[in-house]
Structure formats: structure tokens, C-alpha cells
Design a protein around this nucleic acid. Structure first.
Length: 417
RNA sequence: GGAGGGGUGGCCGAGCGGUCAAUGGCAGCAGACUGUAAAUCUGCCGACGAAUGUCUACGUAGGUUCGAAUCCUACCCCCUCCA
């Protein structure tokens, strides 16, 4: 291919989203000559998505930014089946009510990243329960099932892994890939969808859909997968002290989200800027070239840009400002979590370990005690070793606030009321 | 349905009558060094308690025993082979 690539494919390649594609040149051609309708499926196993899905979300975002039409497919139907990919054990089955609740939560996240307008590239939100729930078993088997070879299904990684490890795989889960393949066909019929994207672990399922589309509808479908993102030291991305890095404010405050990105490893800064921000590549090249500790400036930009996409510019700026106050000045910032405590209780003094638990900095009294004994606890930035040290009115600052810290990075404020 | 194997702390995985709140690894938390990085080193890592300590835990329910994660019985779940 000597012709100039479509901006969509060009972006996917240059920003690091491309892992595998069923037919890159043909897809490129398609994107150059018209609007590509593409989808990514998301299961509704929780009421939010976490950074693990962010790459997929950004892929849809770029698709839209380059003039194409994204479909967000909610797995209202497939969630009832459970994807065996990457799971050692069968997932707990969710009921309709739980799935509906989760879908509502996830929907809100996409409002930030995509534009659901009526234009030619306006995003669509679909739910595969709309067609999967109504499938008639025998007709489905005859029309769709006959195109699947069990022999080949058994060689799929998702299935093979379970079998090799002597772990159970129910017939229900075994059907997952059939249903996902059918989703692709159904979206092709309904919306003219020709491309499915997904993580690299979805390759098998995606290819099944491409094959199925050709067989039942004689339609050319394409698949594109994104690489599995790990940190430079090999860890899976998206875990922090508190657990998964969620994308909604209720589960993970914007400040903590900002902190997550701020703590990116040096070696990941450039890659993450390309994947998780909209910054131009030239600018990113400049940032990632920063030597030594100057790279911290690039991390701050990464944090602010990534947070702005997910929580809005204002929240991102506020998080950055709090971080500056807390880490540079060693003071107090507005975005730190605040826990209210009765003035009367403080008058009597409460033990420091209990204060730490109340502030959410320790899960149990024992944990708080250990933290203190280990020298990691501070009241108003003063370290102390006596776990029964009382926190009292005397510790209040002029604004009636006490700053508690567990280590250098975790802080909370107690406010007397 | 039959035969055999197995279910241990967030995960993996030892232990197979007392010295077991249970070896080890991973993950996690804190400290040191730094740059809110990585790597490295150190400490911690069931709950409650100021504490000798108390409680809860080795699939579930009983039992044997001075004493059980360890032995017995029943049940549940998983795996393999046979039908």
C-alpha cells in the first residue's frame, strides 16, 4: 500500500492501538472511502468499568474522532452467559435487575468519551439482550450453529485453557463465542456494522464473527484487536491499593484517578500518553523525552489529560491543584477525602488507631496499629509511634481540620462538626 | 450409577493428631534510598485488646480424642477414568 492511510488506521497504528487485524489493507480502504461502523462489546458485570477497558473506550473515541461511527454494545444478553476468556472459574450469574443496574452505570461513562448525537458519526448504544433473549433454540442451531465446528471451538484459547487445567467449563459458557459471533452478524444487519474491535484476548471470538458474517450473510466483516497493556515491570494495569481503578466518580474519586496516572512508571509515560490522552504525537514525543526526574512534569500532564477525559477538565484541574498542595507544599488540598467527626468525641480524645480507621486509611484497628508501629502514620504531618496517642481538639488547625496520613501518599481529613 | 483423586488464609501452594493463626511464593501495606517512578534492602500482612490473652478460621454438619487442618461418619462441590 503506497496510498496514504486513512486517518483512523493511521491513528490506531501510530498511537499503539493495533495488535492484530483480520485484513488491514481492506479495512483501511473502507475507512478511506466512507464511514466505518464499528463496535466493541462490554459485559455488564459491574456498575462501572475500570482502566482495563479504557483502551477499548479510547479506540472507540478515536474511531469517532476520525469520522466513523461507534457502537457500544452492552452485553445484556451475553452477561447472562459469562465469557470464559481469561477466567479460571465460572462467573456468578447475574439476574436481569443486576444487569440493568450495571448497564445504567456504564452508560454514564461513555457519555464522557463519545458523542451520542444524531450525526453520521453519532455513537449508538445497543444491547444484545434485544436479540439474544428472543432467540429460538432450534432455528438458531440450524441457521447459526451449523457453521460452528466443535473441533475448532475446542482449540480456542478460552476453551483450551479451561480444559488443559482440568477446570470446569459449562455448556452455557461454551456457547459464549457463538453468541458473540452472532452479535457481530446481527449488528451488521441492523446498523451496517463492519468492524469489531476488542482486546487481544477477544481475537478468537472476533474472528468467529467475521467468519460467520461471510457464511450467513456473505458480508465482509473485519476484526481489529488492541494489545494487552501491562506496565513496564510486567504487572497488569489498573490495580491500586484500593483495588481496581474505576472510571466513575462514585467508585473512585477523580483525585485518586489523577493520582493513579501520576504514579505511572517512567518507562510507560510515552506509551500511556499516546493511548490514554488526545495530545498530539509531536507533543507527546517532546514530553516523553524529558530526562531524569523532569519526566515528572510529563506524568502530571498525563494525569491531568487522562482525568479530564474521564471526569471533565474542572475535576482534573482541581485534582492537580490538590496534588500540588499536598505533595509540593505538604499541606492540605480540597480534593482529599473528608470525614466528619463529632466535636464532642474529639473533646475526649479518640485513639489515633481509631481515627485512622474512621478516616478510611486502615481497614481494621489492627491494621491501623501495625501502620503506626511501622512508623507510617502521621497526624498533621507529625509522625508518632504510640498507637494510643489521642487525637483531640488540640490537633485541630485553624479551619477545624485534622490531617491524617498513612504513608506518603494516602491522606484524609477529619473535620470537627 | 461405579472406581479413584481433590476442596487450606486475596491467589498459588505446603502441612496430614499436639510445638498451627497454619512453611514458602505472589499480591498488598509501611519504612529506608529517591523523583509521589523503577530496582533494591528492611519490617508488617485474621479480628478484638494497653497486655499475659481471647475469639474466629483449613468445603458443610456431626463424631472420636485431654487435644483435630490433620482420624471417623454423612452431606455438598470439583476433577479423572469406567458405565
Amino acid at each position: 500500500m503506497t496510498e496514504k492511510r486513512s486517518s483512523f488506521i493511521e491513528t490506531m497504528l501510530s498511537r499503539g492501538f493495533m495488535h492484530q487485524c483480520t485484513d488491514l489493507d481492506a479495512l483501511d480502504e473502507l475507512a478511506r472511502n466512507g464511514t466505518v461502523v464499528a463496535y466493541i462489546g462490554f459485559d455488564c458485570t459491574a456498575d462501572s468499568l475500570h482502566v482495563g477497558s479504557l483502551l477499548q473506550i479510547m479506540a472507540l473515541r478515536w474511531l469517532q474522532q476520525t469520522g466513523h461511527k461507534p457502537i457500544v454494545l452492552m452485553g445484556g444478553g451475553t452477561t447472562k452467559v459469562g465469557d470464559p476468556s481469561g477466567k479460571d472459574e465460572q462467573r456468578k450469574l447475574l439476574d436481569d435487575e443486576g444487569i440493568a443496574r450495571n448497564m445504567a452505570g456504564i452508560r454514564r461513562i461513555f457519555d464522557r468519551f463519545l458523542s451520542f448525537d444524531d450525526g453520521p458519526s453519532g455513537a449508538i448504544m445497543a444491547n444484545n439482550a434485544d436479540w439474544l433473549d428472543r432467540l429460538a433454540y432450534i432455528p438458531f442451531l440450524r441457521d447459526i450453529g451449523r457453521h460452528f465446528s466443535v473441533n475448532r471451538m475446542l482449540t480456542q484459547d478460552s476453551v483450551k485453557l479451561r480444559l488443559d487445567r482440568d477446570q470446569p467449563l459449562s455448556f452455557l459458557e461454551f456457547n459464549y463465542m457463538v453468541l458473540q459471533a452472532y452479535d457481530f452478524v446481527e449488528l451488521g444487519r441492523r446498523y451496517g456494522c463492519q468492524l469489531q474491535m476488542g482486546g487481544s484476548d477477544q481475537w478468537g471470538n472476533i474472528v468467529s464473527g467475521v467468519d460467520l458474517g461471510r457464511r450467513v450473510d456473505n458480508r465482509a466483516l473485519y476484526g481489529l484487536t488492541t494489545p494487552l497493556i501491562t506496565t513496564a515491570s510486567g504487572a497488569k494495569m489498573g490495580k491500586t491499593a484500593q483495588g481496581a481503578v474505576w472510571l466513575n466518580e462514585e467508585r473512585l474519586p477523580a483525585f485518586d484517578y489523577w493520582q493513579f496516572w501520576r504514579n505511572t512508571e517512567d518507562a510507560d509515560v510515552g506509551r500511556f500518553l499516546r493511548l490514554f490522552t488526545d495530545l498530539p504525537l509531536a507533543e507527546i514525543a517532546r514530553l516523553e523525552a524529558m530526562p531524569g526526574s523532569e519526566i515528572n512534569e510529563a506524568k502530571k500532564i498525563l494525569a491531568t489529560e487522562a482525568t479530564a477525559l474521564c471526569h471533565g477538565r474542572a475535576a482534573a484541574e482541581a485534582a492537580a491543584e490538590t496534588a500540588r498542595k499536598v505533595f509540593v507544599e505538604g499541606g492540605i488540598g480540597g480534593e482529599l477525602p473528608v470525614v466528619e467527626i463529632a466535636r464532642d468525641a474529639l473533646a475526649n480524645g479518640i485513639p489515633a488507631f481509631e481515627a485512622l480507621v474512621r478516616a478510611g486509611l486502615a481497614a481494621s484497628n489492627g491494621e491501623a496499629r501495625r501502620l503506626i508501629k511501622g512508623g507510617g502514620a502521621r497526624v498533621n504531618d507529625e509522625a508518632f509511634a504510640q498507637e494510643t496517642r489521642a487525637v483531640s481538639l488540640a490537633d485541630l488547625n485553624a479551619d477545624g481540620i485534622i490531617k491524617l496520613s498513612a504513608g506518603k501518599k494516602r491522606h484524609a481529613l477529619l473535620k470537627a462538626v
